[in-house]
């Protein structure tokens, strides 16, 4: 059976648009609410990235940090995250889910046990922010055995030589970091420049899917339409924080935002 992540890309391609990927933090602001957000945005998002909150995140900007700290404060544990994924999959079996987080959480859980749990709950892919290539070679192999995509990260600082090596080892989806920034930074390079870098990566192996993330908002998403997929994270976390501050319902507000994002890439 084809990984639902690949199915999502095929579907988006048929509709002549990039896949829309969302990132929300598991347990933000509560277990129940984060599940409800996933359910409600899944109408418009093609792939759901679920953040595993960590309290010393070295690559996240303030919006995602705020969401992560909120979730941790509300008591989220790794097992709860698997439960959220499992419950979501009961509701929407074929919607792909990617867990994104830091390696220590997997390391403490135990790599094998973590992957087994991924299988049991229905996780389709993993992004491990601080486990770069070649350090991730073994773990990526383990993922493959479990039919889970290990998603390699690529950055503007990645040299061409290195890009080729990473792409060679990569699974069908990779993630290109748009610019030198933590998550949610202001887009400091032009969308044109980002697409140029993206095309350079695509040329290495056009069959492999590459999504772009970091700094993408309502305003910029339309200009990056030619990519295989686009990830929006911090803008969504920001909307959750804003809703909570104004005592509004984050589920409705985030849902509206994702709908709007989708409309910009159609």
């Amino acid at each position: 059976m084809l990984n639902p992540i690949s199915v999502a890309f095929i579907k988006a391609k048929q509709e002549n648009r990039p896949a829309l990927l969302t990132y929300t933090v598991a347990g933000d602001s509560s277990k129940k609410q984060s599940l409800n957000i996933l359910k409600s945005i899944s109408k418009n998002a093609d792939i759901l990235e679920v953040g595993v909150p960590h309290n010393t995140p070295v690559a996240d900007g303030s919006q995602i940090q705020t969401s992560a700290y909120r979730a941790i404060k509300n008591g989220i544990k790794v097992n709860d995250i698997f439960k959220i994924v499992k419950d979501f999959k009961k509701f929407h079996k074929n919607k792909p889910i990617i867990l994104m987080g830091y390696y220590n959480m997997i390391f403490q859980y135990g790599e094998n046990k973590f992957l087994n749990k991924c299988n049991l709950s229905g996780v389709n892919g993993l992004i491990v922010v601080d486990l770069p290539w070649p350090e991730n070679k073994n773990f990526a192999k383990k993922c493959k055995k479990k039919s889970i995509y290990f998603i390699q990260l690529l950055s503007p600082t990645t040299t061409t030589k290195r890009l080729k090596k990473i792409i060679k080892d990569s699974h069908p989806m990779s993630y290109f970091i748009s610019m030198l920034s933590t998550t949610g930074g202001k887009l400091k390079v032009s969308p044109k420049e980002i697409i140029k870098n993206y095309n350079k990566i695509k040329k290495i192996n056009p069959k492999k899917k590459v999504v772009i993330g970091f700094g993408i908002t309502e305003k910029t998403i339309g200009k990056l339409k030619s990519a295989d997929g686009l990830v929006v994270g911090s803008a969504i976390c920001k909307e959750i924080s804003r809703s909570l501050k104004h005592r509004q319902n984050p589920v409705t507000n985030v849902s509206k935002l994702v709908k709007k994002l989708k409309s910009k890439i159609l």
């Binding site: 690559a59 390696y103 770069p132 070649p134 350090e135 290195r162």
Partner: peptide, 20 residues
Amino acid sequence: LGFWGGKFGGNFVPETLKKP
């Protein structure tokens, strides 16, 4: 890979920092 005794240290860093 930068590990002392095979297990301490290393480079658990975001891809962006690999080059610098």
